[in-house]
């Protein structure tokens, strides 16, 4: 009878109920798709799972997924470099901060989806336009976080470092860099969401190549199984990447305190 009490305590744990909710939703999806809804439009999760082999066997799908991962990686790296460089330049100089921060915030607030066709017009339908659109989404949060991070450094740190004979390189390495790290990683987390959004928007927009080609082909053929499979794989990639940068942020954002 001890086990009943333990079981009850376990069932009362929120994580248990959360898992229950997810299982319930998946079972409801399975039952409704299997018995009530049109197979052309929706596919039960069991069929999606068992058809992953078929999805990855479709010529072009694995390479389109790899290409998307590559675009996200390059877009993220470029966002980090550009964001950190401009963030430092704007954050460390008072005049630059007052002049350019309003412009950066204004650009960040623009509805960038409206200029997606320009990116495709200029960079073509290949990887370049998707990387560029990812960077245009990802660099602003990093820029803003880095600028905010280094702007708050107490001037006394600079003064005392200089009075101890620190060179410009020393200032950068031992004063600015340690103060930049926590906000930089916060920026990286936000930047990753931006890059994912930008790359996936551009991928879906271009329907003649890459992921967008397959989503439109599967939609036109009413191939719900493959479409749901492809979308799930992309969602899993997004969740995994978000989780990685979140963990890294948790680890490095705390090191000062």
């Amino acid at each position: 009878m001890v086990t009943t009490g333990e079981l009850r305590r376990l069932m009362r744990h929120p994580g248990f109920a959360r898992l229950g909710v997810v299982i319930l939703l998946v079972v409801a999806w399975e039952i409704s798709a299997r018995f009530f809804l049109d197979r052309d439009f929706i596919s039960p999760p069991s069929t999606v799972l068992t058809s992953f082999g078929e999805l990855f066997g479709t010529p072009g799908v694995p390479s389109a997924l790899w290409l998307t991962l590559y675009e996200i990686a390059i877009g993220f790296a470029l966002s980090a470099i550009i964001g950190a460089a401009i963030g430092l330049a704007v954050g460390l100089n008072r005049l630059a901060h007052q002049s350019f921060m309003p412009i950066i915030l204004l650009l960040y607030g623009l509805p960038q989806i409206t200029i997606l066709p320009i990116f495709v017009l200029v960079f073509g339908i290949g990887a370049a336009s998707k990387i560029a659109f990812g960077v245009s989404h990802g660099m602003f949060p990093i820029m803003i976080a880095v600028a905010a991070g280094v702007q708050k450094i107490e001037p006394v740190y600079f003064d005392s470092a200089r009075s101890m004979g620190a060179s410009r390189w020393h200032l950068l390495r031992y004063v600015i860099f340690p103060h930049m790290i926590p906000s930089f990683f916060t920026g990286l987390r936000l930047g990753m969401s931006g890059v994912l959004l930008g790359v996936l928007l551009a991928e879906l927009y271009v329907s003649t190549a890459g992921i967008g080609y397959f989503t439109s082909i599967f939609t036109q053929n009413f191939d719900a199984t493959k479409l749901i499979g492809l979308v799930s794989v992309l969602a899993a990639i997004a969740i995994a990447l978000n989780e990685v940068v979140r963990r890294v942020e948790l680890r490095y954002a705390r090191w000062r305190d």
Partner: peptide
Amino acid sequence: YLIRVFEPLLAAIYAIPIILFLPLYVLL
């Protein structure tokens, strides 16, 4: 209790770029 059950779940879904579901909605 409900907050502790549902809030992390909703926050986790919110972190996915939901624009990915657009092809499914177009199909449906």
